[in-house]
């Protein structure tokens, strides 16, 4: 058995698909991908797969993840092609890789979400934890952005999912606001100085 990591995007109208609906279309696309999928056991077998944490309705995403188990030697190029033919407009698979044995499960490393918030003619980056404190938090963070910085969000996109804050700073030089849900605070993340 191999573990596959599927990286996909969801934008435009597709951003209005709920998490459950997104899982359904991805499961169907996987079923049509030609891969020899692994199913859960029991009365109602399902494709064995897991997803990155739910996106609020209306938020687009550039790099979400799905982990699935397959048997045999999957033809990754062919799978990407077939999945893209089987996804609704606005969704697509950008990469597909066999996860090395040492790589932790998606649920273990998908800890931070980085968001691009557009509004008032500009854009800024917002980072927050995805695990832990429960739902509805992106809305709180956006409210705080409005109160503190006067930025009214017109479009929000989750640009990536990361394991650590350092990883974000390495990839995204520039100003990133971190939303600290516990304290209800926004803080500027330190620029690592790279680039």
């Amino acid at each position: 058995m191999k573990r596959l990591l599927v990286k996909y995007y969801k934008k435009g109208d597709a951003a209005f698909l709920s998490h459950r609906e997104t899982m359904r279309v991805l499961e169907r696309a996987l079923r049509r991908s030609g891969a020899d999928l692994v199913f859960t056991s029991g009365f109602h077998p399902r494709v064995k797969m897991s997803f990155s944490p739910a996106l609020p309705l209306g938020v687009a995403a550039e790099a979400e993840y799905l982990e699935a188990a397959v048997e045999g030697e999957p033809d990754l190029e062919e799978m990407i092609k077939r999945m893209n033919d089987a996804l609704p407009e606005g969704m697509g698979v950008t990469s597909l890789q066999v996860m090395p044995g040492y790589m932790p499960k998606l649920s273990r490393w998908a800890r931070y979400g980085l968001y691009r918030v557009e509004g008032g003619g500009g854009a800024l980056h917002l980072c927050m934890r995805l695990d832990g404190e429960g739902g509805g938090r992106l809305r709180d963070a956006l409210q705080l952005l409005k109160e503190r910085l006067g930025v009214e969000a017109e479009a929000v996109t989750r640009v990536g999912i990361y394991a650590s804050r350092d990883e974000i700073l390495e990839e995204n030089p520039g100003k990133v606001y971190f939303y600290h849900a516990g304290k209800g605070e926004l803080e500027e993340m330190e620029d690592s100085g790279a680039g």
Partner: peptide, 23 residues
């Protein structure tokens, strides 16, 4: 669709982007 579709329950019902939709 740009401004208001997010206000309704299950907007997925109104998107028209089903797989195999002929457009």
């Amino acid at each position: 669709f740009k401004r208001d579709i997010g206000l309704v329950s299950k907007p997925g019902r109104y998107l028209g982007i089903e797989v195999n939709a002929r457009h």
